[in-house]
């Protein structure tokens, strides 16, 4: 704080603190904390509500008895005695009714109970989808890495810098076109009546239901997020000194060894960023499964989350599901950082 005031003066330092804390506390930390809290409780019937309901039944019986007595009183001949007796029975009735109303309120007002039941609600069916989403996202990440590594290497090391710049600029174009529209294009390509099936038909192959089988989701997902792998890889490989490769080659290293001992170790931060982004985007993708399957194939985990929130409107369970996804993504980040021995500073560039 004193360092901040010394550097910027008091008014400016206060302004900086204000904006920074608005962002960090108001937009990042508080929502996350509230979401975690929400996932840990649910509204339940209060404890002992069964006993209360037995009591309420008993009171209703008493009420009926009193009402019966009251109707007997109405037959009383003496007007003054009748009025007196009616008054006392009315008071008793009102007291009973008030007691019942109070008990019923406690019985029906749910109380907030902290529990892990929201997570358990997932059940085996939803848990299977959760696992499937994770495995599929890992596969998307692995494919993207395998496809992009040669591309990034070729552009960064085999092209002149001028041409490399042009190629990367060209790749920005599909990247800049909205994700939904690119996915939609794949929807048309892989459609049952689409060009791929038309082409296969020429060879006498029966049309394949790509979209309904979930293959379409996979293809479109690789396509949609592959560029998040290309750019980080290219950025690190560009900084690799070509002389190192030359030296290794002069010393008799094979291409394989050059890559495993020189290029890949240098590319670690890029690989980490690419894998983390691709995995996170795939596991958290709502658009791809939503557009590619339109409900015809098994859902992606994100669709379950959406349904908990906006269709079943059970926000507690929805928060628990969302938190599960967040935990997996965080876990993946730590594993990648460990495996590739990179720090957060290397990642966020």
């Amino acid at each position: 704080m004193t360092r901040l005031t010394r550097a910027f003066g008091r008014p400016l330092a206060l302004l900086i603190l204000l904006f920074a804390s608005l962002w960090i506390l108001g937009l990042i930390a508080a929502p996350q904390v509230i979401m975690i809290e929400q996932s840990l409780w649910r509204m339940e019937r209060p404890e002992g509500s069964a006993e209360i309901s037995v009591r309420i039944d008993g009171l209703y019986n008493q009420l009926d008895v009193l009402a019966l007595d009251r109707s007997a009183v109405e037959a009383e001949a003496d007007a003054s005695i009748r009025a007196q007796k009616l008054d006392t029975s009315d008071v008793a009735l009102a007291a009973l009714e008030a007691e019942i109303a109070g008990l019923e309120a406690t019985e029906s007002t749910p109380v907030k109970v902290y529990t892990l039941a929201n997570f358990a609600q997932m059940g085996s069916a939803h848990f299977a989808i959760f696992l499937k989403t994770i495995v599929a996202s890992l596969a998307v990440t692995a494919i993207a890495l395998a496809v992009c590594y040669p591309i990034a290497f070729a552009v960064a090391k085999l092209e002149t810098p001028q041409r490399a710049g042009m190629i990367m600029l060209a790749l920005v174009i599909p990247y800049a076109i909205n994700e939904l529209l690119r996915i939609f294009a794949w929807q048309m390509i892989l459609n049952y009546n689409g060009p791929v099936n038309a082409l296969l038909g020429l060879f006498g192959v029966e049309p394949i239901p790509f979209l309904e089988s979930g293959t379409g989701v996979f293809v479109a997902m690789v396509y949609a997020y592959i560029l998040f792998m290309v750019f980080p890889l290219y950025n690190v490989l560009e900084t690799l000194d070509s002389n190192q490769i030359e030296a290794a080659r002069d010393l008799g290293a094979s291409s394989w060894r050059i890559h495993t001992r020189v290029v890949i170790p240098h590319a670690r931060p890029g690989i980490a960023v690419g894998c983390i982004m691709t995995f996170m985007l795939s596991a958290g993708s709502y658009a791809v499964p939503y557009i590619m399957t339109r409900g015809t194939a098994a859902p992606w985990f994100t669709q379950l989350i959406y349904n908990r929130f906006f269709e079943a409107t059970n926000w507690n369970v929805g928060a628990a599901y969302a938190l599960s996804l967040l935990v997996i993504c965080t876990l993946f980040i730590f594993v990648m950082m460990r495996l590739l021995k990179v720090s957060l500073k290397d990642i966020a560039k």
């Binding site: 960090i24 990042i28 930390a29 996350q32 958290g284 929805g318 993504c329 500073k345 990642i347 966020a348």
Partner: peptide, 26 residues
């Protein structure tokens, strides 16, 4: 500084839908 930095970059590493949901809940 390290902790603060981690918090500040964390939204980039969080799935977008979780940022959306947590904001709405909050």
């Amino acid at each position: 500084g390290g902790v603060l930095y981690a918090v500040m970059v964390s939204p980039l590493l969080t799935p977008g839908l979780i940022i959306g949901i947590s904001t709405v809940i909050f």
